[in-house]
Amino acid sequence: MVFRKTLPVIEHNILNRDYAVLKVRDRDLAVDCRPGMFFELKAAVESQRRKLFKPISVYAVDEEKISFLVKEVGEGTQTIIDLREGDYLHLIGPLGNAFPVVEGKSVLLVSGGVGYPPLAYLKEVLAASNQITLLHGGACQSDVFPCDVVYTDDGSMGKPGFVTEGVKSFLEEENPDIVYSCGPVPMLKAVAALVRPVPHFVSLEAYMACGVGVCYGCAVPVGEDYQRVCKDGPVFAADLIRWEEL
């Protein structure tokens, strides 16, 4: 069941100039959340020129509380970040499919930039019954979040270079049973090429209008045709994506 609600922000933490974590509390919305799912979010602020909701992955769920890690990428996300505790957030969700959940496996998680939240949530869910390594890459220090090994493009934190270097080193030492990734398309594409033929699931990001599957605005080349990131995804098997067209 998908809901449209307007809820107060119960917690708001600014992480740095680009990121904030916002929390809402709602039983209906929290109960069906799974790692990989997302919500369409919009600040309840009338003065915005751009009026579409923004698709934001679920970052964490703690009983009835849902957290979102939001990066400022434009007017809509900036207005969400500018909310304070007690301000209202419009939500539609939970939306999309979820990452497949495994047990007793060696799991590699690879995230880039704002691709981090769904994998952090997945890690939380998989942690008890799997061996997990989370590699994360960012452009600079402000894109860094808690993980096992971190890479930054500018070398300001962790190892210098792309997170794909970390994937290469990991594969030299370990044989993961399954890989999950989320981040910018060039990163996902590179990870897909590196880890093949290990089962690999990616969460794709796309510009969306409806978020619920009606408008086909977020479609991406998957399989024989174009599939909706909002409804058929956002999680896809990496080997079904026609990477050359992305």
């Binding site: 020129r49 510009y207 086909y216």
Partner: peptide, 14 residues
């Protein structure tokens, strides 16, 4: 019809 290649949307000021 398979439709057009992405991206298929862009929101403007109005």
């Amino acid at each position: 019809k398979t439709g057009n290649p992405p991206p298929r949307l862009f929101e403007t000021e109005a």
